[in-house]
Design a protein around this nucleic acid. Sequence first.
DNA 1: ACCTGAACACCGTTCAAGT
DNA 2: ACCTGAACACCGTTCAAGT
Lengths: 237, 237
Amino acid sequence: MAQVLVAPRVRLNRDRVLQAAVGLADQVGIEALSMRRLAEELGVVPMALYKHVANKDELLDGMVEVIVAEIDPPARDAEWKTAVRLRVLSARQMLLRHPWARSVLESRTTPTPAVLDYLESTIGIFLAGGFTVDLTHHVMHAMGSRMWGFTQELFDASADPAQPPADPAAQVAQIQAMTERYPQILQISNAAAHDDSVVAHGCDDKFEFEFALDLLLDGFEQLQAAGWSSSPATPTA
Amino acid sequence: MAQVLVAPRVRLNRDRVLQAAVGLADQVGIEALSMRRLAEELGVVPMALYKHVANKDELLDGMVEVIVAEIDPPARDAEWKTAVRLRVLSARQMLLRHPWARSVLESRTTPTPAVLDYLESTIGIFLAGGFTVDLTHHVMHAMGSRMWGFTQELFDASADPAQPPADPAAQVAQIQAMTERYPQILQISNAAAHDDSVVAHGCDDKFEFEFALDLLLDGFEQLQAAGWSSSPATPTA
DNA sequence: ACCTGAACACCGTTCAAGT
DNA sequence: ACCTGAACACCGTTCAAGT
């Protein structure tokens, strides 16, 4: 009876801990990822983890390192605009693989090396493309979260899997109420709908993302061509 | 001895609970806001709160209602561009008053009435300005978090007050190491510096925010003037 | 109708002990 | 050097009871 439960076959190390954490977050979501749950997953007592990460915050930092390293390096021999576009869309692919990544990226307050590497090489694309340091600075700010492959989705329905399915009658009533109270929201949300009989069908996320991204990239291009500098307070495109 | 501790003078109600929660979050930060701590603040036992909010999630929804209502209504008799600009900058003021608001707004998955009101009237500005429903749809997406008065700040130093002050010698060494490893990041972060002897002096947040905002607004304007429609896959400004 | 007390099932983390 | 066990100080929330 005593020796039946297997001891951990492989010795624990930092990388095994981080990989397991990423995998567990992918499976059960970030709010269900606790030190205790992760330890259980690794067949180990909670305190064993603390030999490999100082605390939960450092665990999250480590998870960020893992996923940021998944982003493709900048395309060599490409025009700046395509290079930035490809890079950002690669980041976006990473985010689709790890739905929890957005909130974790946003929660970190100090950049880890992989993150700095990502920034450094992205900045490099603009500078190599002939952008001034000044313009590159503002352009990086303007990219904001879009640099990570996401915009702020106002309501991320996919992030709320615990939504109870309402019965059809109540749904119809709800839509009717919405139409009266928020007619313009309804109009807008139907704009992208091929069939507009039902509200809930979602937008084309990729299209929306690229719409804003290209708008910004085109704007950057115009500023650069015009020799923009931050001396005047307001940019005029 | 028995009657010394005052009973709650004022009867608890939903609004008192929400106001107290907003105030407490302003003071101690969102991660320190617990049901238990809030109850203590109100001189009441934790479970007393549950008569007025169903659970902590509903408390957070209620807090969002309170702060979104603080945003100024749309300016009457203004051109769409100034109207949107004013509105967004008013939202930004609200966010500066409530540093926790960003993460809470982002965490909500279903919109509350005040949020829907905000969206509805913002959409109204574009439609009244002659935007098609189609273009307005994409424009609202492109605004993303900027609609709430913030862009994704990559590293929000102000959100991390628990940073230990490093000694000057270590700081110099750190800067030296950074210069070698991340020369371009350093160049960029110095672009906005008046004196570039020290790294840590921060960017002009307001300038950066308005830079991106105006870039988008100018882009919207050009699309509208050109009679843009979503039929072609990629917008060409 | 509103508030309370005790309890349950969780957290992250410390500290002293085992091998 | 690495893992363990028991304990501490927290959570959100249920349930049965008080007034």
